[in-house]
Nucleic acid binder design. Structure first.
Lengths: 189, 189
DNA sequence: AAAAACGGAGTGAACATTCACTCCGAAAAC
DNA sequence: GTTTTCGGAGTGAATGTTCACTCCGTTTTT
């Protein structure tokens, strides 16, 4: 690699910030270049085109996110404990990284991420999926299609974080616990 | 007056369909004109610019939606009954009108609708708001900020309908009732 | 000195918007 | 009843702007 400060990272970071702030269509490549302190042409040294830049950014964020969420996850704990653990981690991650949340949101609601949605549920959500299945087997969780259960869990999450980030709502630790509890009430038998 | 009294409607309908299918940035005015069977210039006879066209479309859909949702709403019924009634109506409306759902979703997640979000909660959601307040007073509903309660109700709704429309899930009347029940479990004390 | 990395003016395509014009139904003149 | 005039809805080629991406001269690294 070069001895220059890492331009690739600078470009990815600028892209994250700008897209979170202004959306895909509010961020021309020229603006990304400027914010990254880089020439326009340099972007194209590291990424084939804008689409690939965005997909790469997604992949890297997703990996970081996943690593964080499953941190300290222990298969042996009771279902409810594990449920709370995962929810807490997801909430904490997204609340601590509002830019990433906004980017991911935009990504999923765009032609970029349509196909990724399913993948998200199948791969990244795999341990979560297994957890719910086990909960059902133990008679703790309502017997519904997994997709519905996911909706009951992630729906409020997305909604509430959006409101938090836009200042409509101030989430603290206490409220967060009550929220997770309410989410459990929704899916528990 | 006009030779074809329906051009305005044709333009609005074409816009709805195209934006639902292809997003804001996938639908140039030229395409709207073509789909509406109208010249490009005609759009600008009825609407100041593309933004106003989209805002107008939103306003008209919102009015239609609201009228449907509060149909048959009776203030005197018990809180739970009214809750179920409103949820059912919203679900039914959005499931019966997937194009409108997709359009509204895009609208809210874009610079167009940022300001509208609050309004949505304050005006269109007013009876809903009052209902939750009453539920709290009667000790039926969890004592949480209204924004959180809204999140617990509308979050799953949006998520689940999205999954239904994309074919990930088949919602029927039975499942719908169970879903509304689960939502109530989430917010009830 | 050769090779790699970089920068940013330049290019063409896509787009929203405009405006000079057409066309037709209806009113006015006959 | 027939002809002329007129208003304004309707149109799409032309315009100006924005943007992703390229090309090549310059700088940095080896």
């Amino acid at each position: 690699m070069s001895r220059q400060p890492d331009k690739r990272t600078a470009i990815l970071l600028a892209t994250l910030k700008l897209i979170a702030e202004r959306g895909f269509h509010g961020t021309p490549t020229s603006m990304i270049a400027e914010r990254a302190g880089v020439g326009v042409g340099t972007i194209y040294r590291y990424f084939k085109d804008k689409d690939q830049l965005i997909h790469t950014l997604y992949e890297e964020l997703e990996a970081k996110n996943k690593a964080f969420v499953y941190q300290g996850y222990e298969e042996e704990r009771p279902v409810l404990d594990r449920f709370q653990h995962l929810c807490r981690n997801i909430y904490r991650y997204l609340l601590a990284n509002p830019l990433e949340f906004r980017f991911l949101e935009q990504y999923f609601d765009s032609p970029y991420g349509v196909a990724k949605m399913r993948q998200k549920l199948d791969s990244a959500g795999e341990p979560f999926h297994a957890l719910l299945k086990e909960g059902k087997r133990q008679g703790l969780v309502k017997d519904m299609p997994p997709t519905l259960l996911f909706g009951l869990i992630f729906g409020p999450m997305i909604n509430v974080i959006k409101d938090h980030d836009s200042g409509l709502l101030k989430l603290d630790e206490v409220l967060l616990e009550r929220l997770i509890e309410a989410t459990w009430d929704a899916i528990k038998k």
